[in-house]
Design a protein around this nucleic acid. Sequence first.
RNA 1: GCGGCCGUAGUUCAGCUGGAUAGAAUACAACACUACGAAUGUUGGGGUCCCAGGUUCGAAUCCUGGCGGCCGCACCA
Length: 601
Amino acid sequence: MNLMFEPLRKKLTLPLLKAIQNCGVMSSSEEIYKFLVEPPNPDMGQLAFGCFVVSKNLKKAPAVAAVEIKNQLEKIEGVDSVEAAGPYLNFKFSSQFLAESILIPILNKKTFSENLVVDAPKTMIEYSQPNTHKELHVGHMRNLCLGDALVRLLRRSYGNNQIISSTFPGDVGTHVAKCLWYIKNHIGLNILDQKRNSPDRGEWLGQMYSAGNIKLEDEAIVPEKFEKNKKELTLILKQLESASGEFYDLWKETREWSIQLMQKTYVWADVTFDKWYWESDVDADSVRTIKKYFAEGKLVESQGAIGLDFDFTTETQKEKLGFCLLLKSDGTGLYATKDIELARRKFEDYKIEKSIYVVDQRQALHFKQVFRSLLHLGFEQAKDCFHLQYNFVELPDGAMSSRKGNIVPLMLLVEKMQNHVRTEYLSRYESEWSADELNSVAACVAKGAIKYGMLRQDTNKKIVFDMNEWLKLDGESGPFIQYSYARINSLIKKINISIDGGVDKNFDGGLLIHSSEIKLMQHLMNFNTQILLSAENYKPASLCTYLYETAKKFNSFYHDCSISQAETIELKKARLALAMSTGEILKQGLSLLGIPVPERM
RNA sequence: GCGGCCGUAGUUCAGCUGGAUAGAAUACAACACUACGAAUGUUGGGGUCCCAGGUUCGAAUCCUGGCGGCCGCACCA
């Protein structure tokens, strides 16, 4: 259940409820809280109540209802004026009240610790399902950034203990076989002695996979070669399955190389998982589980295979999800087989009530079938399983595919971005800052650029990745927000005044009357509402927009209202408090997106 | 054929659980640094919100039907 935590809205609910009841209409605080919106123009006030709901019950025009409610409204402390403007009641708060109820909780950090929701469900978020023996590319970056931001947003909203993050790497399967096949048949196993000590052995495996795939596709048109290759691949897969033989040993060793490369990426992204589910671990059990369900009569047989049919029409039901195949006619499992077993483990091992899967949109039907199957098998939690689908990252000349080998490796983007930031923007500090600081700031800004770029766009729109466009860093970007933060930070250091008794105590908020100051405060007011909205709608992109607007509103304030040149020391203190609050919001907000801030840049 | 997602300024996108005059960025034009950091700010032009119906006091937003693009639909993952 969501709490009413936003102080300005909360302030108006009770007086409004009373006034509406005096007009003879029943309502509730929750309803009123929900219908309080921001006027289009901040000069009209900070909050507006649309009288449409009331007018319906009153059977009067909304504008008439607005006037009637206004007449019933008692004086509210902190509210300077109430105006009926057409169907709306506009409330203008005093600067004093705005500063007290918005800035002070930010400065004493209450804003960042108060509860937003009670009775939140225990939730698992699975994201990043990388394959070993392949290299992560910029497409995987979208998944990683999205999943991580969701974990952070939901932890803030639901509480840290309610959220479990997990990953499900694919460390077995035909892609592994293809990679090993190519090394053995076309490179020779001797090379491994040399690769063992090579720093790029993980990347190299990815290249071997691509090369193997291309080779196999080329040779598939010659029937003899096709048959020979198929036999060799089957042999490899059999060895992996039986956990013995030279390919099994090879797999065990090379798997580690890939995992180390993944870890490197996760370290870069500041991502950690509470639980790693390995495909190799789930694989065998999944087939056993499905066979058990079949023996219990919960599944059907069709054309020698086993699964569930969700394509039927009866008098009461209509389903068009197709046939969900769970066991092939040769008795082996499929992707869906593993996902059923995986879900079972999540439900039973962690007692989760809600399960989120961050996977690209091509899997939409797959997850519909899996969730439907889980429900059929008696898992009520399936109703709270959610597939967060996102669209692909493409290159300007089309789709990216590690099979074809036309990928932009994820760490290449990171490297290019860091170098770019270092040479184009930070070179001016070359003589002033230490090399360590230059490097760490470049890394921080690059991270901001990449993560923000991946998150700012709505999940169901595709991203066309153009390296040159990404390196531009102007307009709505992560570094724009980081820059605003860095500027606020150095501003605070330079102003060099102290606020008696700490910044959260003694400043006169009543002095903040410039429209840029009011607009900024009004915007800061919505921080927690915005977080909850982003979390519950699974939309980190909306938090991106919010933070970008925060930075822009701060920039306007910065240009309109000088702090160092403020007329009085009191005004200086008040403006400083506003700047500090904004800096805090930017820092905390970015951290929920997984983006750090530099102290200077 | 069936299903999912998308269609808003030249371009990339917000807004979509219905509400006040549809917003940014970019590109283009002009202006503002002896100044708390110009990775900035201010101003300007630029729109049949894919089309047609419907619901409503009110539709970019909801419903129906089209059109266009991408994706998916049984032994791959």
